[in-house]
């Protein structure tokens, strides 16, 4: 097994974790990252739910593990195609670079939903409508939240399910991590700006983690965050650049109108842009949502429909950071079993 070579596509947390586990088992591993550094989207993230920890520590410890375990990391290289070449796989990248591997792990991640498609929410049109991703980037860069006029917001609305559970944009699935992200960001705003009122507009609160409900309770009790069950119908800018939003207060059964200084859209996860390229010329397929399909939901989550190609992380479905790491380890185990069962 020691002479086998595994190519891992994507140097985010899933790719890094899986690559280091495989390398520690003695396999030759090449980690291929399209950008100049590893860590993926977490590099832009300020704090993680539910413990408000910094992702920087996680990313740097994964980078150390990857390096120390002997993984060969290649940067600025984007794989455009995986093809079967005899018993091996040929991976083609930009500038005619090719890799050959005995097994491939696709950890190409997800795309953030483009909120400009949800035109009625005014993202890209009104300066005070931002996304949850923008919030993290701003917090990381400036450590504060300001309106476009430069003032501290007095009232913020956080909108759940933007680009998720919405047939109008073609995504009927739940992105799973947004509800708890919204609660985390609401608490952060409230701690930073104690005078600021924060409202969460939700359809259902989907708090799947064992500690997430206590965060919800804390948000209500300690931070007075108000949860309004109703989906936003539209956002419009007022003369003073504040945003007028409309929703139904579904528990009251009445339409509701509110002026807020800022709107934060909890944007969902979509299948990665590279997924459609990668599935060409091989038998990998996607599921009903466009994410990579597993051969079995329960016992072969990391096995693609093409033998020898495996998957890890959010290329499979929306998942949180801790689940992604676990999922990457499980993918590494699957690959090791694959080699053990296919002795030449």
């Amino acid at each position: 097994m020691n002479n086998k070579h595994v190519a891992v596509i994507g140097g985010g947390i899933a790719g890094m974790e899986a690559a280091s586990v495989l390398a520690r088992q003695g396999l030759k591993v090449t980690l291929i990252e399209k950008q100049a550094n590893t860590g993926g989207k977490l590099n832009d993230w300020d704090h993680l739910f539910p413990d408000f920890s910094s992702p920087d520590e996680l990313v740097s410890s994964l980078a150390t593990k990857t390096k120390d375990s002997g993984v060969n990391t290649v940067y600025n290289t984007e794989i455009s195609r995986i093809e079967r070449a005899g018993k091996r796989f040929e991976l083609r990248a930009n500038q005619d670079v090719r890799f050959y591997a005995d097994a491939v792990l696709v950890a190409s991640g997800f795309n953030v939903f483009d909120a400009t498609i949800k035109e009625e929410y005014g993202y890209g049109l009104f300066g005070n409508v931002i996304t949850s991703v923008d919030f993290e980037k701003r917090m990381k860069k400036h450590g504060q939240l300001r309106t476009i006029q430069g003032t501290a917001p007095k009232r913020v609305a956080i909108i759940h399910c933007v680009g998720s559970r919405d047939a109008k944009v073609g995504n009927t699935y739940c992105s799973k991590v947004c509800c708890i992200t919204g609660i985390k960001q609401a608490i952060e705003i409230s701690e930073m700006l104690p005078d600021c009122e924060v409202f969460c507009f939700y359809m259902d609160l989907r708090l799947y983690g064992s500690t997430f409900d206590s965060l919800y309770l804390q948000a209500q009790k300690r931070h007075k965050i108000q949860f309004i069950r109703g989906r936003l119908s539209e956002a419009a800018e007022r003369a003073d650049k504040s945003i007028q939003i409309k929703a139904e207060d579904t528990l009251q059964g009445r339409p509701l109108r509110m002026t807020v200084d800022m709107v934060i859209l909890l944007v969902g996860m979509e299948p990665g842009a590279s997924t459609s390229q990668l599935i060409q010329k091989n038998q990998m397929t996607v599921d009903e949502n466009g994410f990579l399909k597993s051969t079995n939901m329960h016992c072969a989550r990391n096995q693609s429909t093409q033998e020898g190609i495996f998957m890890a992380g959010t290329a499979i479905c929306p998942m949180a950071v801790n689940e992604t790491i676990e999922n990457a380890r499980s993918a590494a185990t699957e690959i090791i079993h694959f080699f053990e069962n296919h002795r030449p």
């Binding site: 207060d249 009251q252 009445r254 339409p255 509701l256 109108r257 509110m258 002026t259």
Partner: peptide, 14 residues
């Protein structure tokens, strides 16, 4: 014009 009663059912949070 007294029969006209302009009103709104909308919850006005402001």
């Amino acid at each position: 014009l007294s029969f006209l009663k302009p009103a709104s059912r909308q919850i006005d949070f402001d």
